[in-house]
Design a protein around this nucleic acid. Structure first.
Lengths: 210, 210
DNA sequence: TGTGAGATTTATATCTTTATTAATCAGCAT
DNA sequence: ATGCTGATTAATAAAGATATAAATCTCACA
């Protein structure tokens, strides 16, 4: 089989697809090989262990998430609420592009303590990361001091945004599988939620009292 | 081993504990037997299949969640915002009581389509369920008509509340494992979040324009 | 042309898991 | 005591998974 292309890459892609759909425990190296159309031993030839292969897929996804998050925050000339709109929008669109991602990441990080540790180290060594919290913190607390938004802890702020954004993509597949909704309906639902989330967060933290 | 107590019940309890910690795929009937201190065959003697045993645990948990949700909604003499505070509070406290529950339910529902179907049927046959959405819908849309809250779709409203509430308990274990925080810190974190969520939702849907 | 390196497959050892069957055990009724 | 019944265990079949080693294939290059 397969003159077509570098089998190593094909294996990686097949693994990504299967891991994303069925998780680590739910996919076997045999499945991966079958999907590529090659022998099961080849998977181990290139990646030695299933765990290795998995980590390669997983870390790549994680980096994409990080990169997406920090981008819109650095845009200096947007005002706070615009920045907020942008970052929620960008993050949301990124996730909408592959709706399986949030569940995948959460699932595999919680399912395996060793992996969680690895991920954490990776996260910490990543130069971009250390700054992200700092950036958000300055931006948010500046607004608090200006009284444009109510006093709010930065961690709480981040959790508000992330909760609302991420959870959609966990609820969505449940809703879709159960109601058997079309792709159009799915897109419609996602657009609606995006607007609602932005409205809720902005109203929810805006300082209306004085 | 085990004169102590009905082994059937002990198996069920051990299964609950292990399934909750490690998920369906992550626990074997051997693990369960080992925890009880009995023979592995006994697990199959009482429950025939692993899937059977799992469903028994899973459905029980699901029912508890439903029951908890509908309770505070029926209290007639609380005004809307109090009702909201109560339902968020009750739901939140319930989840706080076993923080593994949200991840467990989501994980096992998304991980297996057949199971999702079963759960859905169970959910639909459950007499209490059919009403919950209706109740919330009436309550919310009444307030919209009274202009105490801005126009908001009931589905969006529910998703806002559930996202914020549930996601905490998914983020919490990640945060705790990684930062190695104490039980006190965990409790503190949960209390803070509860207040923040209530504030955010109320401010976020309150009608301030006019 | 032939040989060596990397790519790919065959074959298999080892382990784990689920599930079943048959054997043993304990206690109660007669 | 005997024998029945349900509880429990021992033993094992069958299936699937990971991983490794050895065999084969391919093809560039000397």
């Amino acid at each position: 089989m397969a003159k077509e292309q570098n089998l190593e890459i094909q294996i990686l892609q097949a693994a990504e697809e299967l891991f994303l759909n069925n998780g680590f425990a739910g996919t076997s190296t045999t499945d991966i090989a079958k999907r590529v159309g090659c022998n099961q031993a080849l998977v181990h030839y290139y990646f030695r262990t299933k765990e290795n292969l998995f980590l390669q897929v997983f870390m790549a996804k994680l980096d994409m998430i990080l990169k997406t998050l920090q981008q819109p925050l650095l845009n200096q000339d947007a005002d706070f609420f615009d920045k907020l709109r942008n970052v929620i929008g960008a993050y949301y669109d990124f996730l909408a592009n592959d709706t399986r991602l949030p569940f995948f990441v959460i699932n595999e990080m919680l399912g395996n303590k060793d992996r969680l540790t690895l991920v954490y180290e990776h996260f910490m060594n990543n130069t971009m990361r250390n700054n992200v919290f700092g950036i958000i913190d300055t931006v948010v607390q500046t607004e608090v001091r200006k009284h444009t938004i109510r006093p709010i802890d930065t961690v709480n702020f981040i959790l508000d945004v992330v909760s609302l954004t991420v959870f959609n993509f966990i609820a969505l597949p449940i809703y879709c599988d159960v109601s058997g909704c079309t792709d159009d309906e799915k897109q419609h639902f996602l657009r609606l939620r995006k607007d609602e989330i932005i409205t809720l967060v902005i109203n929810g933290i805006k300082n209306v009292g004085n």
